Simulated scan of single mutants.
Amino acid sequence: MRKVSLATKNPTEGTLGPTWEGPYEITKVCRPGTYQLCDPKGKTLSHPWNADHLKYYYK
């Protein structure tokens, strides 16, 4: 799961909107603690994400 930041938050949802998006799959380790993500449909996100902004999702 990826943490929703001000840049990725939908402004119409307000303060009660979700704080996590996902699930996402890690496709590449760019460097330790930085990961390239892919959504369930196979689309790769445009830039890598730091591990501080990610959390595990268990099915």
Rank of each mutant, 00 (worst) to 15 (best):
C30W: 00
T34C: 12
P23A: 08
I26Q: 07
N50Y: 08
T19P: 01
A7W: 09
T34E: 13
N10G: 06
M1N: 09
G42F: 03
Y58H: 13
G14Q: 03
Y24K: 00
W49P: 01
G33Y: 06
N10Q: 07
K55C: 10
G33D: 05
W49D: 00
E25V: 13
K55I: 02
T34P: 00
K41H: 10
L37S: 06
C38P: 01
G22S: 04
Y24I: 00
D52G: 05
E13S: 12
T12R: 12
W20C: 02
L6R: 12
G33T: 07
I26C: 09
N10C: 11
T19Y: 02
G14T: 05
N50S: 14
R2C: 00
K59Y: 14
K28H: 15
L37Y: 01
C38S: 09
L45Y: 08
V4Y: 02
H47Y: 12
P40K: 13
I26V: 15
R31F: 08
C38R: 15
K3Y: 05
Y57N: 11
V29S: 09
K3N: 01
K41Q: 14
S5P: 00
M1I: 03
K41I: 05
T27A: 08
G22L: 04
K28R: 15
T12D: 09
W49G: 01
Y35C: 03
E25W: 11
L54W: 02
K41G: 10
P32M: 12
V29A: 06
T8V: 02
P32L: 10
W20F: 07
W20E: 00
